[in-house]
């Protein structure tokens, strides 16, 4: 099938010298490239691959970190809003309580003042009535003495006073 002679016009001819040259040159090329080219290229590609993977991982970590920070921020914001609402409610309750206390105390004081004023008014009235009764008795005694022309002893005076008082009471009230 193959012609091992140097027959240039036959494409299927095989010549030993070119064949050996092809083997030797190809082997030398493979050896040189394996020693000086492929390790360098493989190292460069691997380093770039590691760099890209590292950058992607760092970006993913940063994104996860940012997401966690955002979630923490939102959680704290919600917590702060809840705290603020609670504080406002407590303040309102305290203010309401203080107002209620103040109003109750004012009402109590007012009631006390009213009660005290009523008592003082009653006492004043009773004192006035007593003074009026005494004065009326004296006046009645005086008038009666003048009418009767004589001094009125204690027994008469007592009877007269009681009578005057009864009359005064029946007419004066």
């Amino acid at each position: 099938m193959f012609l091992l002679a140097a027959d240039a016009s036959n494409p299927m001819s095989v010549q030993i010298l070119p064949l050996a040259t092809a083997v030797v040159v190809a082997l030398v090329t493979v050896i040189v490239l394996s020693l000086f080219v492929w390790p360098t290229i493989a190292k460069g590609l691997d380093e770039r691959n590691e760099k890209i993977l590292g950058e992607i991982k760092a970006a993913e970590d940063a994104r996860a970190h940012a997401k966690a920070a955002q979630e923490e921020f939102e959680r704290k914001l919600i917590q702060a809003q809840q705290d603020a609402d609670t504080m406002i409610k407590e303040a309102r309750a305290q203010a309401q309580k203080a107002a209620d206390d103040l109003r109750a105390r004012s009402e109590a004081e007012l009631a006390e003042l009213k009660k005290r004023a009523n008592a003082e008014m009653d006492a004043a009235r009773r004192q006035a009535v007593a003074e009026l009764e005494a004065h009326a008795a004296e006046l009645a005694v005086s008038v009666a003495s003048k009418i009767l022309g004589r001094a009125i002893d204690a027994k008469d005076q007592k009877a007269l006073v009681e009578q005057s008082i009864k009359e005064f009471a029946s007419t004066g009230r």
Partner: peptide, 22 residues
């Protein structure tokens, strides 16, 4: 052609390796 091709191939790939290297 084999020898010249090998020389060109090695030279071009060596230059490329130097440029691909970090």
């Amino acid at each position: 052609s084999l020898v010249v091709g090998a020389l060109v191939c090695i030279t071009v790939l060596m230059m490329a390796a130097r440029r691909i290297k970090t």
